[in-house]
């Protein structure tokens, strides 16, 4: 189901990104606390060690990147990481620390000396990033980006 949903989002991409305020990311739309995925993966993985769902590519990852050509820009990487790790990220943001938050700052390209400021900022603005339990990864990315844009020390990290 999730796969279908993401596929649909990708198909609608030109339209969706034209509608978005900022044209960043992939328009990937997995939802916070989407739930139930666990059971499905468990059943599917039960005998073959395989997985289902998005973000699994063949060896050449023809579907990697937003344009399907395998080109991965920094913002694509950030968008895909957020999309694949919404819950873990929400948890780390609420604490202002953790491996997933660290990975996000690295993928975002935040310099070592600005990481503490970044972590403190997103923790303080938790409710502006994860605006509701129904927020999607695309919106989370846009929220993060606009919070960074309006912060005087971090504004240079704004993705475009």
């Amino acid at each position: 189901m999730k796969k279908l949903f993401v596929a649909a989002t990708i198909t609608l991409l030109p339209f969706a990104s034209a509608m978005a305020d900022q044209d960043i990311g992939c328009g990937l739309g997995s939802q916070l606390f989407a739930g139930k995925e666990g059971k499905v993966v468990k059943v599917l993985g039960a005998t073959t060690n395989g997985t289902s769902g998005n973000q699994t590519f063949g060896i050449t990852f023809g579907t990697l990147g937003c344009d399907g050509t395998g080109t991965v820009t920094a913002s694509t990487k950030v968008a895909q990481f957020i999309d694949g790790n919404m819950e873990q990220l929400a948890r780390d943001v609420s604490r202002g620390e953790g491996e997933f938050l660290e990975t996000l700052t690295e993928a975002w390209g935040i310099n070592e000396q600005d990481k503490v400021a970044f972590n403190m900022l997103v923790q303080a603005k938790f409710s502006e990033v994860f605006t509701s339990e129904n927020v999607t990864s695309q919106v989370v990315l846009e929220n993060l980006n606009s919070i960074i844009a309006s912060d005087s020390t971090l504004t240079s990290y704004t993705l475009s």
Partner: peptide, 11 residues
């Protein structure tokens, strides 16, 4: 197949 490592960690 190739995939981001976080997918496997989560799984």
């Amino acid at each position: 197949t190739l995939m981001p490592y976080y997918r496997k960690v989560r799984e």
